[in-house]
Structures are given as structure tokens and as C-alpha cells.
Design a protein around this nucleic acid. Sequence first.
DNA 1: ATTCTCCATGTTAACGTTACCACATTAATA
DNA 2: TATTAATGTGGTAACGTTAACATGGAGAAT
Lengths: 328, 328
Amino acid sequence: MVKMTIKDVAKEAGVSTATISRVMNNSGYVSEDIKQQVLEVIRKFNYQPNAIARSLKQEKSRSVGIVLPDMANPYFMKIARTIQHRCFQLGYHLLFIDTEENPEKEREALEFLTEKRVEALILAGTGENRDQIQAISDSGIHVILADRRFSNLKLDTVTEDNIYASKSAIEHLLEKKHTRIGIINGPKTISTARERRQGAIIGLEEAGITPTNEFMFEGDYTRESGIEAIRYFSQLPDRPTAIFSANNEMTFGVYLGLQELGIPLESIEVVSFGNLEFSSLFHHNLSVIMQNPQELGETIGDLLIKRLNGEADSVQNRILMPHLVPSK
Amino acid sequence: MVKMTIKDVAKEAGVSTATISRVMNNSGYVSEDIKQQVLEVIRKFNYQPNAIARSLKQEKSRSVGIVLPDMANPYFMKIARTIQHRCFQLGYHLLFIDTEENPEKEREALEFLTEKRVEALILAGTGENRDQIQAISDSGIHVILADRRFSNLKLDTVTEDNIYASKSAIEHLLEKKHTRIGIINGPKTISTARERRQGAIIGLEEAGITPTNEFMFEGDYTRESGIEAIRYFSQLPDRPTAIFSANNEMTFGVYLGLQELGIPLESIEVVSFGNLEFSSLFHHNLSVIMQNPQELGETIGDLLIKRLNGEADSVQNRILMPHLVPSK
DNA sequence: ATTCTCCATGTTAACGTTACCACATTAATA
DNA sequence: TATTAATGTGGTAACGTTAACATGGAGAAT
């Protein structure tokens, strides 16, 4: 069964396509009689306007791209979900792409999205493709960096205060008399990893402790790299007694690693940047820096609406405050 | 900065738009000289064809809709992620919508997606909107039901054997000498809930036990309803000693509920339909019916490609086999 | 020399909307 | 009554592609 077009409706209702269009969009003048008659035809044939044709004519795709490094990470999905709801309300659709932290895939994704003529782009990037992202912004597409920023790029950002939160994580461990703290971080290309590292170092130095490379493990924000970190730390002569893990997935890996090595999970004090769903059930020594992906999503949503409405405003950089929830 | 069109490229390269189109699509005849010249212009101005115009002309949106009840549930997101990768490879984009199990929202979502002219629709539905879904299929959009089916609708489905798996869950608990088994299920409107119930009942009856309504709690697949189920069961005179929970979120709620009531988590034997990420770290009496969302996604992806390529085939109903992983 | 292919290119009409303009008609105002 | 304004409607040119058709030249086969 082939879809009806506005012409078919016009013929059926005995009016011009212009009138149908006016009825559909509640624009211009249409007499009440004709309006009802047209609506009747639309209802009867279940006519739906072709959004693609409309987009072409109006030069508005009514779509927004969102590029995330990991669609299975609840943190990112909670951000995405909130934004999805907002977009749906606006009649926009979201084009999701999962890059799996792969810069090349990200590059392709960005190209794909610009061909699809998204009006805005929300990006939690790999840290590469700076020029491309800047070019996208320059071409008039609204870019909002989520969670991760680029230094020196004049783009909207909605991020969290990683330095402050990481510093307080370290302070928390120091208060518990730990001095040998293993730090598991993400890739240096990613701003959150750099900032979390920086915060941790500040925390240590303020307590008069010199950070050593031996206790810094550079992972890649995956579960597997959390496991590897534990394998690495466990074979050091002077093992850490506490761990600061820079994201939720790696923290999960930490516990999997401990389990693999037969080390009691509660024997190690852990602070995780980012919540683990089950941490409230967990009686191990796990403290969590609670992020607020929903608020992040809402903040992005608000900004997005502003940008799509063309409400001129200078570059926005919003920073949310995570807070530490100590272990019980 | 305004985007370049094919006409600009044509003018710049001194040829017709048709030639540009032929170069872009590797179709028809173009001399090597001109081809190189055109490619040079394209590169120089970073020309990107407008996918919307192309869609309109070709009457192909190159998009697929996916409607899920819960974007934050890892089970659904793993399905979605797999499909997203497939679609991206094909040059298709996915329009995601999260209905939050709300039938009205689902109705709107389906309407939205048909206006956007998706070529296919992947749906894990609320169980309502049957007519609308059938109409979508009749109108020539490929519909694939994921995880949840509709009886009597002639549509492709990729689901799991809920009856078999639930039966084996009950058998597992019976083997462990539990006879008072609390069953926490989803809404009866959803096929998975009906089937999981049916499987559980078969399991009980085959063991000569008469299922009682007292031990059946109808939740709504949310965490909160798992908590409520525990509150309900805990005030029964003869409490269940074991729980069969029909999805991962409700199982989570079970533990939250036990914790809330101060009941030791390991004092209750639980079987969960669907994995909890952390179950391997968990030393409680938790057995899991392992689903395989990735395989589900791949199966859907394969089917999707077939359908999009128009490879004629009768209605497909694929059923995957989950398996029980007993508690340690 | 004539016909027939194969190449290589250009011309143009769609695809389904909407926005602009033109043209009536009616109502309100001077 | 004449003029203006408000209302209602239709015609049509775009939006940026591509596919069908047309055209013409070069070389091969008759």
C-alpha cells in the first residue's frame, strides 16, 4: 500500500495543496468549513505528511546527532535518555552513534551526521578529531560537548568538576590512613581522564605525598582495563592498599580482577568515579563519587532548546558538581 | 557558512550536476579525467551531498526506528547497540524512542516514526497498539518484534523461549527443596510476562504443587515494583522462602526491598530472569537465567538486512534459548 | 561508406512539501 | 460610494538530489 501525498488529499477534498498545507500547519487563513472538510479527509485516509519532503523544503532536518563512546554504559545512557525525551517533545529525532571510544569511528560518525544534516550535535568525544568538530561548529551546526571537553575550542560544554571531585576522593582515602593509593585512569586524550588525574595529584601533593608513576595505571575506561590494572598492582612489591578508579566500568573491573586473583573484595578500599548500580547493596569498602547524568542531560537539553531556537547567547560552559558518598 | 549544493560543485567543475551525481555514486559512465577533476572540487570545498534531498528523490529514508520500553535497562541497550552498529554499516540511521512502558507514548512514537518514513521498525512493545502496528506493517514498513511478541499478528519476531526458561527456573528452586516460591511478574499485557508466568505454572504443576495467587505478584518490570513485591511477600503469614523474579530490574528491587526490611540478602534463594551485571560478584543465593541480548540484536540485524534488501521470505519467528546459571 | 555499439556528457522532470505571490471576495472605514 | 483592510483560496517555484532520456562522438563491424 502506497502512502498518500498532499496532492491526493487536495484532490480528494477538492481544494489546492496550499490549503491542505495551511490546515496541517495551522498557518494562514482557512475557513472553518474547509478546514473541517480537509481534516475529515486526512482522518479518513490516515494521511501523514512526509517529514523528509518537509525537511527539504524548510531546510530543517529536525534531527540532532548524539555521539557517545559507550552505549552500554548506564552513565551515558541516562544522559541520552533525558535528551531523547526532550527531543521527542520538540518533534526532533535523535541520531545515536556509539563510537566505542574509537576515533576513526567517531570521524565517520561525524561525517555521517553532517550528511544527514543534523541541526545540532551532542558529543562525548574520544579527544581526537578536533578540527573536524570545530569545522562542524563553524558550519553552523550547534555543537554541545557533553561530559568531555576540548581545551581551546570555543564550544558549549556541559561537564562535571572532575578536579575537585577527584581531589576529594583522594582526601577521603588519606583520611582513612591510606598512603599507597593506586590510581586507575582513562586515556590521556580524554579531558575527564586528564582532569581526574590532575585532581588526584593535587590531593596527594597537598598531603605532602609525591605521586609516583608506579601507582598510576592508564586504562581505557573499559571493564577489561580495570582487571588489568589490578593484575598490574597486585604484582608490585609494595601493593596499594586503596584504589581510586576513574570510571564506573573500570571499578567493575577492579572487583572482577580482585575476584580473579582471590583477593577478598573488602580488603581493598575503593573510590569510584561514577556510580555502580549495585553499590548500595555492596558491603565492601566502596565509596562513590556520584555523578548526575540526568541533570547533565537536562542541562544539555535546556541548552539545546536555546540553540535550536536561535536564542543568541555566548558560548556556555556549565559545570556540575558531583559529590562523594562514603562507604558504609 | 552555508552548505554547498551539487549545483555549486557542477559550476565549479564546469560540468553538469548529472556528472557530479555519477561521480558521487559511481554509476554510469564518467571519464577518468573528469572524475578526478570533480573529486578534486569535492575535496577542496568539502562538499557533502544532502542526504535529505537524496532520500526524497529516491523515496528511501535510510532510517530505521527502534522503540524500546526502557533505555536505561542494559538488556535493551545491548540489543540496541548491536543493531545500531549494523545500521551504521549500512548507512542507515536509527531513530530511538524510549516509551517507558507507556502505551500512549508508544502510540505517539509510532506515529512520529511513520511520519519520518522509517523503512523498518524494531519494537519491544507495551502490548497495546496492536492495530496501529499491524497497519504499519501493512503499509509496507518492515516490522520486527524484539523480545516481545503479539499473538495472532503475522509479523517477524525474535524472542526468547520464556516458557522453557521459566519452567527450568522453578525446577531449580524445587530441587533446592523450596516449595513456597514467590513469583514476581511483569504486566499481563506483555507477552514475556504471560509466558514467564505460564512456564512457572507448568513447573509447579509438574511437581504436583498448585500455584496460588497469594504467591503471584504482578509488577511492572521496574525496580520499584520489585521492592513492592518484597514488601507484600514479607507480610504474608507463610512467607515464600524463594523468589522467581521475571526481569533484571525487579530482581534489583528484590534486593533493595530485602535490604530495606533488614532481611539478610542471602537468606532468600532467588532466580532472576535476566542477568544482573554484578551477579558474578554477588555471594548471595542468586541464580540467573542468562539472556543473550547481543545475539538477539544480531539476529534482528540479520533479519533487518534481509528485509531492507527486499529478499522475499515468509514471516520469520526466531526463538533464542536462554540458560540458567545456578548460584554458587 | 554506412550502420551499430559503446562511451561520455547534458537536459530535465520528478520526489512531497511549503512560502510567496496573485487574485478574489467580503467587511470595515472614510 | 469609494477606498482600504481583512480574509480565503489557488498557482507555482523552489528545496537538492537522481533517473530517464536525449545527444553526439569515436571506433568497430558490415
